[in-house]
Computed example of a mutant assay.
Amino acid sequence: MIRVLLADDEPLTRAGIRTVLAADPEFEVVAEAADGREAVELVQAHRPGVVLLDIMMPRLDGLSAATEIGRTVPGTGVIMLTTFSEDEHIARAFDAGAGGFLLKTGDPRELFAGIRAVARGAACLSPEIAHWAIRRLSTGGERMTGVLRARQLAEGLTPRERAVLGLVGAGLSNAEIAGRLHVVEGTVKVFVSAILRHLEVRNRVQAAIIAYEAGLVERDL
């Protein structure tokens, strides 16, 4: 069972997400928070596997809460819940240590898959956010300019590194990638580190964005 903590200042939003998660016995909502400071305190108290954080909350916003959770409870995966009206905050969120980004208006199946992915140490993001981010966000100080730029970055990788990048983009953890490629997990970690350095990105989510736009992600994995 995956233990989940919800953090959103809108009671109706929390109730809706709680109802959706209740439909699957794999998930247990262990606590709810109405602001970022409360979210940090409850994560520290309950140690959930995954916390769902609204970006915009009182007392402490979701971005600051994500950073604090990553510092004090690194074992908890963080998924940011957002809308495109908050696009200027999404840019900051990529540096806050979150493992996933999902739209509040997305399909519940994306929520289930995202929680599972982040709980096992992988990355997740809505396809809409991936396509938005590749055009809007800067990576390594240079503005991404879409599919062409992503493909140019991917072409600088070895064939095996491109295969690993595609699996990262598909939301697989290091252990799952190792099993699929028939190598040890330590080898995958070396590949992922090399990929992040080459792409000049900070985390798996940013790498996943490039994998999406470079056409390396197999949708049916």
Rank of each mutant, 00 (worst) to 15 (best):
M57H: 04
L103Q: 03
V201S: 09
G146H: 02
G16D: 06
G215W: 05
E41F: 01
T72H: 14
V205A: 11
Q206R: 14
V184R: 14
R136M: 04
P108D: 11
A113W: 01
L12G: 04
G121T: 09
S193Y: 08
L221S: 03
T13P: 04
G100S: 07
H198G: 06
V164D: 12
A123P: 15
G146L: 01
E68M: 15
I69N: 06
F112R: 13
R219M: 09
E41S: 04
T105K: 08
V73S: 14
T76Q: 02
G49D: 09
A22E: 11
F27C: 00
A23S: 14
G100L: 05
L148A: 15
R149L: 01
A119R: 00
F191H: 13
R180N: 03
V164Q: 13
A175D: 09
H182F: 15
D220P: 03
R92G: 08
D87M: 14
A22G: 08
P127W: 00
V188L: 10
G179V: 06
R202C: 08
P25Q: 07
A194V: 04
R120F: 10
R135Y: 10
I209S: 14
V190M: 08
M144H: 05
E142S: 08
G62S: 02
L153S: 13
G70I: 02
M80I: 15
A66F: 00
A23V: 07
G140F: 09
P25T: 08
E32M: 08
A133S: 15
I90L: 15
L52P: 09
A34R: 13
C124L: 03
R92F: 01
N203E: 10
T72C: 10
D9Y: 04
D35W: 12
S173E: 12
H131M: 10
P159R: 09
I115C: 03
A178R: 11
V192K: 12
R59Q: 12
A163H: 10
G140T: 02
L102I: 15
G140E: 06
F84K: 10
I209L: 13
V168R: 05
M1L: 02
A163E: 15
G62N: 01
F191K: 03
E161K: 05
R18H: 07
V78I: 12
G140S: 09
L181V: 15
E161D: 11
R151V: 11
V20Y: 06
V4L: 00
A7D: 14
T139P: 00
A113Q: 12
A130C: 06
D9L: 06
A23I: 04
L6G: 12
Q152Y: 00
A7N: 12
A122D: 10
T72I: 11
G62H: 00
V201G: 07
G106H: 03
H198C: 08
A208Q: 11
G70Q: 05
T82E: 01
T187F: 11
L157F: 03
L5V: 11
S173R: 11
R136T: 02
M80H: 11
L6N: 06
R151C: 07
T72V: 14
L53P: 09
G70L: 02
H198N: 07
A130N: 06
R204A: 15
G114Y: 05
T83H: 01
R160I: 14
